[in-house]
Nucleic acid binder design. Structure first.
Length: 350
DNA sequence: AATGTGTTCAACCGCAGACTT
DNA sequence: AAAGTCTGCGGTTGAACACAT
């Protein structure tokens, strides 16, 4: 279907509007309404295309537009709506009186999006991003780890799998090399303010039986037997595995980080997905994907104290509105990170 | 004070869909 | 039904400004 002629082809003026042009546009619309945008510029005596006039009016001159900085409540609303609607700026703007889609889009791209990225959160999915570095845990597991878990089944998975669960599983497995309990507790201690559900580190002891159930051996020892047969299978599948990782952990595909069961293959679910430990680990409602939209409730995490119903009560960094753009990059990358073995050369996989 | 670098945001571009002829 | 027109949307750009060196 035909497209409206571009301003260029008609030799119409482009670029910033002058106060005189603004006044002409305001005067005309106040007197006649905008009517047909296509005929408006001619009638109003403007050397602009209708498209440019519409944009100038709707984004700048319209008296309904609220100017100035976004309030904390507005920002929270934007984050929440974006987690549901995505880049539907006009739909978001419809729920924010006085704000235009362009303004919201700009604010998102220049403020919120950057903050998400710095915090290790995917601005598209609102989920923590998977870093390639974390994959060393998985690959380390393939080459060096001793495990009684059926890793060959894991390696053979070809359908969509859950990277977050994989990473958690790999971290758990690799931790057997050292001392899982020690590394887990140490990590909790270092990141205590990220784990409101573990404010008292002693609470970890409540999980120990579940950890042991998952690992199939006591967390205080690392005596799981090696299966030579399985090691062989690992080696023969490693190319396939790396290829799978490469294709599934690209930046774009990191969007698929979901903790919902239907994204986890049965193989993996059988091994990890129904673990009471994992369920317990994420039992905090703020830590779990929302039932309705499968997103973390990041609005609560990111929001300001005035409206945050579940503040991260031990971290003044995240409660300070003045710190909203300066949080450490490690926020979400630390949320699920328990310690990365440095045995593997990550550059080999990049 | 001059220059370089980063940030912001108004405006533009091109596409898609609804509507009209 | 097909072609043309109009409008709205989302992505992108670049001038202006702020800040650092």
């Amino acid at each position: 279907m035909g497209r409206a002629p571009c301003c260029d082809k008609n030799g119409l003026k482009k670029g910033p509007w002058t106060p005189e042009e603004d006044q002409k546009l305001i005067n005309y619309i106040q007197k006649h309404g905008h009517g047909s945008w296509r005929t408006l510029p001619k009638n109003a005596g403007l050397d602009r295309c209708g498209k440019s006039c519409r944009l100038r009016w709707t984004n700048y001159l319209c008296p309904d537009i609220k100017r100035g900085r976004f309030s904390f409540e507005e920002e929270e609303t934007i984050i929440q709506l974006h987690s549901v609607l995505g880049n539907k700026w006009s739909a978001i703007a419809a729920r924010l009186p006085g704000r235009t889609d362009n303004e919201i889009k700009n604010y998102w791209n220049t403020h919120i999006r950057k903050r998400f990225l710095r915090m290790g959160i995917d601005p598209v999915t609102h989920n923590p991003r998977v870093y390639l570095l974390d994959l060393s845990s998985l690959l380390n597991l393939s080459f060096y780890n001793t495990s009684q878990l059926n890793v060959s089944r894991l390696l053979g998975i070809q359908s969509v799998l859950n990277p977050e669960l994989l990473r958690l599983a790999a971290t758990l497995l690799s931790s057997q090399h050292q001392n899982f309990k020690y590394s887990f507790v140490q990590n909790l201690h270092e990141n205590q303010h990220y784990y409101p559900q573990f404010q008292n580190l002693e609470q970890f002891s409540n999980f120990q039986p579940q950890v042991e159930e998952l690992l199939g051996c006591p967390t205080s020892t690392t005596t799981c037997a090696t299966s030579l047969n399985e090691t062989h299978i690992m080696e023969t599948n490693v190319d396939q595995f790396q290829s799978h990782l490469t294709s599934n952990f690209s930046c774009e595909n990191s969007q698929s980080i979901m903790l919902q069961d239907n994204l986890v293959p049965d193989d993996l679910m059988g091994t990890f997905g129904h673990s009471s430990f994992i369920e317990s680990l994420f039992e905090n409602p703020d830590f779990l994907p929302n039932d309705n939209n499968d997103h973390f409730n990041l609005a609560l995490v990111l929001s300001t104290p005035s409206s945050c119903s579940t503040p991260l009560n031990s971290s003044p960094t995240f409660l300070s509105s003045s710190a909203t753009e300066d949080e450490p990059d490690t926020y979400c990358s630390n949320m699920l990170k328990f310690g990365i073995p440095d045995i593997l050369e990550v550059n080999d996989f990049m």
